[in-house]
Design a protein around this nucleic acid. Structure first.
Lengths: 143, 143
DNA sequence: TAAATAAAGGAGTTTTTTATCTTTTTTATG
DNA sequence: CATAAAAAAGATAAAAAACTCCTTTATTTA
């Protein structure tokens, strides 16, 4: 698995919220959980964390919920991934070797450097805003 | 992390054993653990498992240890990874969605299909035998 | 054949990740 | 201001992954 479960849920949630908030609509924890088919209480924690990290926004009380402001819409999936899993996805050695680096590469270094770069590139070039567009995700996330 | 810790150790161990067994030398658990800087008892379990799965060979008793026969040398790193982590590394959806497939792709499907293919290709094109060669891994695994 | 060596096997423990439940705080509105 | 709606916070719990220890079995060799 490239991303942790938390990170997978986070990405799915951000995509869902982006899509739902295209008309300024806010969504509750319950809606997110149903919309992306994730455990209610677990996604609650994740949303709370993403909110604290300013990846998403939230307001309490009636008509409150989670949404994305303009600034947040400009972020990329890379930001979400880094918030959740840090940058070992892009930086870490495939063999888990601490010493591994450009100057002292492990046997798989060159191969995986490319792979990591491609992962980073893919995530960098996908902005959250793209998911807000009308049928940006015809294949809906749920089920 | 692309691979599990067990898988990382497994790859490192196989590379190490391949290199050591280039003159028919067998290596003990202790040697492997030191050689690749891994927990002794943990790598013992992994080697045991790899041996049962016929990824590596072993003999008991004095002068025994782990080694690789001709057939094993012809395997690729893909075989090692599949033995340890199964094929979700190559097959699974980046967002952990069960429904995700060619006919019903998730929003990141196409991007990650390429990434997974590249991972598979890299591992397929790296045979164990390559690591047996004299300075196939100048940057030694240890430390 | 006894002793030593080395892996195999079985049975834990610890740590991390994933998941749940309950209480508190904030906010809107009748 | 009372009530309800919603997220924030805190405290556990369950499951999985990582890691350890002890006993058994197989093999060599003196």
């Amino acid at each position: 698995m490239i991303f942790s479960k938390s990170c997978e849920y986070a990405i799915r949630a951000v995509i869902y919220i982006a899509h739902q908030s295209r008309n300024g609509k806010k969504v509750s924890i319950r809606e997110v959980a149903q919309g992306i088919d994730s455990p209610l209480h677990f996604i609650a924690k994740i949303l709370q964390y993403l909110s604290k990290r300013n990846i998403i926004q939230s307001t309490k009380g009636p008509n409150g919920g989670f949404y994305l402001d303009k600034r947040a819409m400009k972020q990329t999936l890379e930001d979400v991934v880094i918030a959740m899993d840090g940058d070992q996805v892009f930086e870490g050695c495939a063999l888990g070797l601490r010493y591994c680096s450009e100057s002292r590469p492990c046997p798989l270094h060159e191969e995986f450097k490319q792979i990591r770069e491609q992962i980073r590139y893919s995530l960098q070039s996908t902005t959250i805003a793209q998911f807000a567009e009308e049928d940006a995700h015809k294949p809906i996330l749920k089920r």
